[in-house]
């Protein structure tokens, strides 16, 4: 009946189709943003982290003795800062994924009530629902853990 109703309004049907395409494109772009954030964060955090680890465990690589001592003194502090930086970057990426999940949830509910031209069986699957619940639970749990560990 739902599809019949939309069939009576071909303009509406095409408008919904376009809207869903736009939202899907936005969701894909946000996915790319999240990937870029993860990549840049790992690249900017892992290399200095490896460098400081090398300075801590393999001190003979650093030639000057004064440099070696300074490096070892600052190493623990730097490692902590770099780890915090890495975690914050990954949390930012998770926030972007939450944004993505919110957008996809809009498409999901449209499919559920039948105002979407896409068949409701394709948009309404239990996998989508598990994805939303998983992302949000992960987000809330991670934030609570980080907050308590401060």
């Amino acid at each position: 009946m739902v599809k019949d109703n939309l069939g009576m309004f071909p303009i509406l049907s095409s408008v919904f189709s376009d809207a869903q395409n736009i939202i899907s494109i936005i969701a894909s772009v946000i996915d790319i943003f999240a990937i870029v954030v993860i990549a840049v964060t790992i690249f900017t955090s892992i290399l200095p982290l490896i460098k400081s680890t090398v300075a801590l465990f393999l001190p003979f690589i650093i030639q000057s003795s004064s440099d070696r001592q300074t490096a070892q003194e600052n190493c623990a502090l730097r490692r902590r800062v770099l780890k915090a930086n890495l975690i914050k970057g990954l949390l930012l990426a998770l926030e972007l994924e939450s944004a993505n999940a919110i957008l996809k949830m809009g498409i999901f509910t449209s499919g559920l009530v039948g105002i979407s031209p896409i068949s409701s069986t394709s948009t309404f699957s239990i996998n989508n629902f598990i994805f939303f619940v998983g992302i949000f639970s992960l987000r809330i749990a991670l934030n609570q853990t980080i907050r308590r560990s401060k």
């Binding site: 946000i30 919110i102 957008l103 809009g106």
Partner: peptide, 9 residues
């Protein structure tokens, strides 16, 4: 939905 999408984007 479109307004929400624009805000998120």
């Amino acid at each position: 939905d479109i307004a929400a999408g624009i805000i998120i984007a």
